[in-house]
Amino acid sequence: MSWDDFALAFFSLDILRQACPILLSGLVQTLLLSAMVVPLGLFGGVLLALLATVRSPFVRWPLMAWVDVFRSLPPLVLLIFVYAGLPFAGLEVSAWGAVAIGFFLNTGAYYGEILRAGIESVPAGQVEAARSTGLSRGQAMAWVVLPQAVRNMLPDLISNTLEVVKLTSIASVVALPELLFQARQAQSVTFNATPIVAAAVAYFVLLWPVVRLLSRLENRQLAGRR
């Protein structure tokens, strides 16, 4: 295969021009999807992390089981289960609805773990000092614990958010017309790999700055761990 053939198959400007509108619409859907599932997952995570501050074993153990079950199920399995399974129970869900439920369960469990670890990373003396000056449990949480926790867990939060944005690509499996789905459509119509390559480039351009930032933060964190 000559270089020209190769370029034609993967980097054809002609094909790119044709596929551009549909790819752009996919990109918009991917961004909308991310704007929905990241807050949704964070919301689920905050709920779980707040529940984790309850010390009763009747809360703690079921909570841990919940988190571990949804961290064990691959997100795609969860999504298919909701999308293809629930209609059999008489519950029709749209692709968007299925993605929302699946991500709430999966992403929420991951965010929940990160938030919990962040809260626990703040020394007990901090809460004691706050309570000794008369701050309530909630005030101590809001003013003393959370600001420190967020700083400690920032790399993990960013890293998880990156993974969530990448994960939106599985919505293509339930025919939600996001970037990967549209690229596949374009590819199957044109019999040319350029649309998929273009989609990959779009993801890379979008997420590369985040990866750079993260790798800097993580290096610092691991080095500080010794």
Partner: peptide, 27 residues
Amino acid sequence: ARQRIGMVFQSFNLYPHMTALGNVALA
């Protein structure tokens, strides 16, 4: 009740994310 009882700890327990003034002013 705790407002009337001040406490000073062995390990200070100052809030690291606030200035000295912020630490004192919080409560």
